[in-house]
Each structure stands twice: as C-alpha cells, then as structure tokens.
Design a protein around this nucleic acid. Structure first.
Lengths: 191, 191, 191, 191
DNA sequence: CATGAATGAGAGTTCATTCAT
DNA sequence: GATGAATGAACTCTCATTCAT
C-alpha cells in the first residue's frame, strides 16, 4: 500500500525534472507541476510542501546514481585512457544537451537556501576525477600533471560550456575543443 | 533640462545592478527596484517599462566599456606575457568576486527572450582573447597553441568558476589553478 | 459535486447583472464584482478571466430565454391584437424600468470587442416582430403596412427611449406615445 | 493675450471630440487627451481639471450651435414639407455617421454626474420639432397628428438607430425606413 | 502659463496554500 | 489520500494629479 505513495512521488519527480531543466528553479510554480503531473493542488501538496522540496528530492536522486562513476572500471583494471575516452564521450554528449541540465536550476535554488548545500556535488565530481587521474598516473598511462589544476579545468570548463550553450548557439568544434584539451593534458603521446 | 531624465536612468541602472547580480533576473521585481532607487512605481515605469528593459540597458552599458580590452596594450607593443599577466589578475579578481557577476541574471534573462541575444558577448570575448594569443604567437612570446581550443578553455573555465563559486565556497587554490593553467598553456618556459 | 462550480458561476452572473445594468460595462471592475459576490479576487478569477467573459455569459443567458417571444401565442392562434397588446405592455414596463437594461453596457461592450457580436440580438428582435406583424396581416387583423419600416420604428424607438430615459426623467406620456403610435400603425379601427 | 488661452481651449475641445465620439466618456483619459492635443500634462490641467470638464465644454458648444434649427426657415415662410425634407436629409446623414455621435459618451457621462443635466438636450429637440410640426399643421401642409406622439417617435427612433448602428452593421434601408415613416406620418398625400 | 518628472492610489492578474468534502 | 474551490498576498502596470523648474 505504502508503495502507491512512493510511486506517485517518483512520478512527480519524473514529471517536474524537465520543467526545472528547461526553465530553472524560480520560474517553476506548484501550479506548473500540478499541470505536468495531472495531480490536483491538494494532491501534490500531500506529497511535497513546495517546489523546493521537490527540487531537493530530484537532486538527491541524482546524487545517488551518478552515471559518470569510474570506480567500477578502475576496480576492473580497465586502462585509464579507455576510461577517460568513455568519460569524455559522455561529457561531450552532456555539453551538447545542456537543455537537460539542471545547472541553471541549481544555481537559482542555491540562492534560495542558506548554506553550502551544493558542496557535495563539487566534492563528488572532484573526487571522481582526482581518483581517475591518480589511477592513470599510477599506471603510467597519464602524464604527471598537477591533478588539482587539471580537475578544476575539467569541471569548470564543462560547467561553463553547459551553461553558456543554453543561451548561445555553440558548434561542435567548441565541445571538441574542451574534450581534446583534456586529452592533451593527460595522455602521453606515442612518439 | 532634459538631462534630469538621463541622470535618473543612470541612477536606476546603478541601483539595480547589484540586485540582479545578487539574485539573478527572474527574482527581481519592479517593486524591488522601486525600493532600491527610492522611486515610486509610476516614476520607475516612466523610465523603463519592465525589468527586462532595465536589464538590457545594463547589458548595453556593460558591453560598451569592457574593462578587459587588450587592444590598447597591443597597439602600444606591450609584451604579450605582460598583457596576459594583467588580464589573468583581473580574471582572478572577478572569479573571486562572483557576487558582482551578472552571469546568473544573464542566463535567466536569456530564457525569457527569444533569439540569440547573448551571442555578442561570447563573440566579443572570443575575439579579444584570440587577438591576444595571436599577437603573442606572432611575437614568439606564446607557444604555437591551437588558438580556438585555448580560448574556449579560458572563457568557459572562467565562466564555470564564476557561476559555481556563487554557490559553493571556493578556495583561492582553485582560482589559481585556472590562471596557472592558462599561463602554462601559453608561456614559453625559460629553461 | 461538480455542481458547486456551476452554482457559483450562476451566482456571479446574478450578482453582476445589476452592476452592469446600472453603470454600464466599462466602469465595472473585477473588484466591484468581487465585492458584489463576496468572492475573493482569486476565487472570482477561477471562474471568469475578466469582466468581458462575465458579460458575455450574461448575454448568452439572456439570449436563451427571451421573455418577449410570440411564437407560442401564434401557435395557439391567439388573435394578433391581443398578442400585440401584451407585447406593448411588457415593452412599456421595460421602458419604464430602463435601470434594469443592459443597453448601455452592451454599447460599451461592443466597443471593446471586434466584429459584429451584437448582430444576433437585432436579428432576433427583427424576426420576432416581423413574424408577428405578418401573422396579424395574414389574419386580416393588422393593416397591410410596410413591415420592415414598422419593425424598424418599433425596435429603435424602443431602444431610443430605453437609453434616453436612463439619463433624463421621462413621463409616462412618452412611453404611452410610443406604444400608442405602434398600435395606430397596426390596428384596424372599428368605425 | 487672453485670446491665446481661448484658442488653446478650443483646440483641446476640437481634438478631444473625436475621442469621446469613438470611445465614449469613461474610456477616455486625460493622458489620451494630452496625446491627442500634444499638450503636456500640466498644460492640459491648467485649462481643464478633468475629462468631465472638457466634456461639459464640448456639450455646451454643441448646444449653442444646433445645426438642425428650423426657426430661420420658418421665419422665412419656407414650406413645411421642404423644411422637413432638409431636416430628414440631415438626420439620415447623421444616422449613417453614428461614429461621430457623442450619444454613447453622453450616456456614460450622465452616469457620472447627479441630476438631470441632459434634460436641456431633449427639451431643445422636442421644442424644435414641435414647433415645426405645428407650423406645418397651421399651414395645412402637415396632417393633424398627435404632435407629442410624433415628436417622441422622431426623436427616439433617431436616437435608437444612432446608438444601435454603432454596434451592428445597418443597411441604408433601415435609415430610409425611419425617414420615410416620418414623412408618411406628416405629409398629406396628393390623391 | 507650460513642462514633464514624480507620486500614489487602485485595477488586473497570478499563485502558494488551505480546507471542506 | 485526493480533489478543487476559495483565500489572500504580491506583483505588474496605468493614470489622475501635483509641483519644482
């Protein structure tokens, strides 16, 4: 029985994700979500008491299942360049599809709450990439770079492109520039 | 004097800039700007017919006086590494003071209008940096890098940091990572 | 029950009719109707999105139940002079009570919309009277008049009196003048 | 010197007449009249303290020069049918050009002031037509009709058509119906 | 007198939120 | 739990009106 409630919650999150992705956090109203879910005002409120709560729930879910997690690959001793290749392919895909990104909504949401609620996201990203690069260096497949520096470049150039490409049209060459740059920094050229 | 009107307009732009910088575009209401300027509703409306018009006026002014313009320095034959040094110092300053940035407001504003209104900003930034790097390469003071790639990294890493630092606390080491990375890409090491 | 909504709608129409009748269309605001109905702003707006929509709904209802319809009487073969007598009695009553008339509101409303939305009202009135007069002529109870001419006089003299009597005080003799004139035109005198 | 002021007043009345004729009284704002006259807010207010005052001034002027005044013709012993013919031609012209009519504005204006301010207009019209018909009867050129009745029909049918034709499209046959009807009532047929 | 910037009241409209059913 | 009518606060926008210049 309690399962039904959980299903409805899931459905609400599913239906509101694209709204937040498209229009950010502030613009989306409970009314919008009512319409997107087909729920009545009261019905929606019996699950979530406001857009903030819904957005938090979406972020939590997102945090759990991070598709770009290299841990498994590293455990399987996959070559670092190969893991990197995969990661960059996904990254490029995401840069190209910034309309699916919650970045804008996250920025806006962050402005409505106090405290460093978003810190976890950076930390997760930083850790993941730091681990991968160290893994590659240990395996002598990556150059001995300044890890913190490269990770910063990776994360923020990615974020910058994702945000900026929402508002100006961007060609593939820009996405490639970012991924190629990262490869150049890490991969050891065969001479 | 017809000058009075212009002065009030300036005052409105001045007073509303920090509002947009702090809270983005969508959150700011005409009422907020009334309070910030001390004008009455009607008084404000007789100058601007909405927040969009005010924000556009701010952007226009910003576009005119770009503080980070290297043209003069290049005309004066200043060494490219020196120009770069100055530019990165300003860039670091701006990354550190992202609370003064209109980035979030621009992202939100872009979502409210149709068309590629923001394209001019990227183009201006791209041109400026492309010119500088080519200048440095011509003078044999910069490495012969892939200009488009480096410019993309510069612009988007900068944007990424500026946005992200609004919502997570960032240490100086991250700002330095970005500027150092750029230097490494461009400057020729004296061995 | 979904019936509640319909009841409230009816109540709103009922409550706003006298407002429109008294002050015309333009002067009446949603706030006035809020006060007349006892509803809150939001409550009223959830039923009608503006005074125009409310007024249209009132007109629609009015159009449906036309109290001055002679069809039934003609079907029952009632003598034409008798039908006329009744009609004129009602007409006189309405001229005397022009404060209940929506005429002014209709004129104003017509100015706010495009297209010939009011045409249906004239047509209905014309048809009704044309049918009656032809009926009387066929039964040899009315003079063989120019039907279109008499109908025009009936309709517009009636309208003229109704409008004019809103703003100047009018004695019974004027109302009688109109009805008597119509009778004289139609009825065959027994000499 | 004081002449300039009078000229400006005239100009204001001239410029605002068509506004009232087109949109009635309530809809017209001081702002509209500012724009129509090209005067500044303060300038306009230094002549008239509100739309009511302007409209009253227009009505006063209108009352003075009544174009449909038969007195002169009667003094000149012109045949009554001829005077009638001219009057009806003018009347038809006015019915056809109801967009120039202040009727709607007068109705609305009457609702904003207390007292029978419009009575003078009816009385003037009634007197004019009563005099003409009596003149015709005295000269044995008109039938010996019930004068009050015919005058009522003339005035109110005319008013009714003028108002109604603002909001529904009306063919020439209707205007003719009214004028022909009046002629039939008054003119003695030559058998 | 004329100008036009500014005031402030008030209308239109939208939603977050509640609550009787 | 769900529904959806209703509330009321907040915002946008428009003018009548004033007043310093």
């Amino acid at each position: 029985m309690g399962n039904k409630k959980e299903q409805t919650r899931e459905m609400i999150l599913e239906a509101s994700y694209p709204l937040f992705a498209k229009d950010g956090f502030n613009k989306i109203t409970m009314k919008d979500i009512c319409e997107a879910t087909g729920l009545s005002r009261g019905g929606l409120y019996s699950h979530f008491s406001g857009t903030g709560e819904i957005f938090e729930a979406i972020l939590s879910k997102l945090n759990e299942k991070d598709e770009m997690d290299f841990q498994k690959e590293m455990d399987e001793k996959m070559p670092a360049p190969e893991i990197l290749e995969r990661a960059l392919r996904l990254m490029k895909y995401e840069m190209k599809h910034s309309e699916d990104s919650l970045s804008l909504a996250m920025y806006e949401y962050a402005g409505t709450v106090s405290g460093d609620v978003m810190g976890q996201f950076t930390e997760a990203g930083e850790k993941k990439w730091t681990d991968l690069i160290n893994y590659g260096i240990r395996r002598k497949e990556f150059k001995r770079v300044d890890v913190h520096e490269i990770v910063s470049i990776i994360l923020y150039a990615y974020q910058g492109v994702r945000m900026w490409s929402r508002i100006v049209s961007m060609t593939d060459s820009t996405f490639r520039a970012v991924t190629e740059h990262i490869k150049k920094q890490l991969l050891i050229e065969n001479s």
